[in-house]
Simulated assay, not measured.
Amino acid sequence: MERVKYFLRIVETYDVARQYYVYLKSCCQANFPDLADVIDIIYLLVPKKHLDGHKEDCKYRFSLNYTEGVGRSHGEGIEASWAESKQSGGSTCQINHSHCHDTINDLHNYWNWNKLRGLGA
């Protein structure tokens, strides 16, 4: 529990988080026994856009709306950049791994910069 004391909780969102949640602790205890204590502070939740496709009880148990400390998060932040990232496919498919990594980093930095500039508008 030494490493866990620094975190209150770790919140992850994924559209099939409910399915992973069922076996997460037993899987970690079997394969990563030294990290099994970390599972107790991990909250696997379903992003709001994907919540409608789940059963009623899951909508409450795995919802960001009813989880303390996550506020009005929607859990879909990473998906917003995918459309921009796909545009780099043509220019990154033929370059070496290191250059590809740098190009994708540059693309995301530029995308984040544009998003940051637009926050005040």
Rank of each mutant, 00 (worst) to 15 (best):
V70H: 00
K86W: 02
R72Q: 15
Y60C: 08
T92G: 02
H99W: 07
N31R: 09
G71T: 06
A17G: 02
I39G: 02
E84R: 04
H108W: 08
R72E: 15
Y60G: 07
K59Y: 07
N65D: 15
H97D: 14
C100K: 11
G89P: 00
S63K: 07
I42E: 00
H97S: 14
L107M: 12
K5N: 08
R61L: 08
E12G: 10
G69S: 05
A30D: 07
T67G: 00
V70T: 04
V4H: 03
F62T: 01
A36M: 07
K49S: 13
R3H: 14
C58S: 13
N112W: 10
G75V: 02
D102N: 13
S85P: 00
E68R: 08
A80H: 07
N105V: 12
G89S: 10
G69H: 01
H54C: 11
I78W: 03
G90V: 02
Y6M: 06
Y66R: 11
L8C: 06
A36R: 03
A80Q: 11
K59L: 03
D57G: 00
D102V: 04
H74P: 02
N96F: 14
V16H: 06
C93D: 08
Y14D: 15
E79A: 05
E76R: 00
A121H: 10
S88C: 10
K55Y: 10
E2N: 12
R3W: 14
Q94M: 13
R61I: 01
R117L: 15
V38D: 03
D40R: 02
Y60W: 10
A30V: 03
Y21V: 01
K5T: 10
S91F: 05
A30L: 12
S81F: 08
C58F: 11
D40S: 11
P33M: 10
P33W: 11
W82Q: 02
K115E: 14
T67L: 04
D57C: 05
F7C: 02
P33T: 04
E2H: 12
W113Y: 12
N65Y: 13
E2P: 04
I41H: 02
T92A: 09
K115H: 10
K59F: 05
A80P: 00
S88I: 05
L107T: 05
N109V: 05
E2I: 08
S73K: 02
S63Y: 09
A80N: 09
C58H: 14
V38I: 15
E84K: 05
Q87A: 06
S63N: 06
K25R: 13
K49G: 07
G71L: 09
T103Q: 08
G71K: 05
Y6N: 09
N65E: 15
E76H: 02
R3G: 04
S85I: 12
F62W: 10
A17P: 01
S98A: 15
E2R: 09
W82R: 03
I104P: 02
T92M: 03
H74Y: 08
V22P: 03
L119K: 08
L8V: 05
E79Y: 07
A121S: 14
N31V: 09
S26K: 12
N114W: 06
H54M: 03
G75R: 00
E68F: 12
S63W: 11
K5G: 03
Y66P: 01
V4W: 01
V22M: 13
R9V: 01
Y110Q: 08
E84N: 07
H101M: 10
E56N: 04
D37A: 11
L64D: 02
